[in-house]
């Protein structure tokens, strides 16, 4: 039996509650991956925050699919993935993945797999809001006069 949840949220992510929610008597390892907003510096400008949008409910279903893939490949007792939309300030979490497994190997591997798959198949997009405009990450389209490269 595997438990857990796959959610896309607008508010802040309670990382602590997600981690402790994965504790189970049949699992001896809980691996957590937290993606946070990193501030890149340009010439005289910097990223002020990130903003995420998603195509729902396709994005919700793709998160669940990743969970199914993980359950098919590894012996896991718990998989949770939570992704935030909207504004995420520097140093704040945008995505949290928690995997519990009887042993540490599958927990580490499955949590790594989850974040790589999110970046491949889940229709979520982020733009960097700079002091002088914004840029869609991955498309390099935006309103900045001095494009980042």
């Amino acid at each position: 039996m595997t438990d857990g949840s796959f959610r896309i949220v607008d508010g802040p992510i309670d990382v602590g509650a997600l981690v402790t929610g994965a504790f189970r008597p049949d699992c001896g390892a809980v691996a957590t991956f937290v993606g946070t907003t990193r501030v890149d510096e340009g010439e005289g400008t910097s990223v002020e925050y990130l903003e995420y949008e998603a195509y729902r409910p396709m994005a919700d279903r793709k998160l669940e699919e990743i969970g199914e893939e993980i359950r098919g490949r590894w012996d896991v007792g718990h998989v949770s993935i939570v992704h935030k939309l909207g504004r995420v300030d520097p140093g704040e979490p945008s995505v949290v993945i928690v995997v519990a497994s009887p042993r540490r190997g599958p927990a580490f591997e499955a949590s790594r797999y989850a974040i790589e798959r999110i970046k491949e198949i889940v229709p979520i997009w982020k733009r960097e809001i700079w002091s002088d405009g914004y840029v869609w990450v991955g498309s390099q389209v935006g309103t900045r006069s001095t494009p980042a490269e």
Binding site: G35, I118, I124, W125, K126
Partner: peptide, 10 residues
């Protein structure tokens, strides 16, 4: 139909 640019979640 949805038009999807390169995804950039995470």
């Amino acid at each position: 139909v949805a038009v999807l640019p390169p995804v950039s979640g995470g």
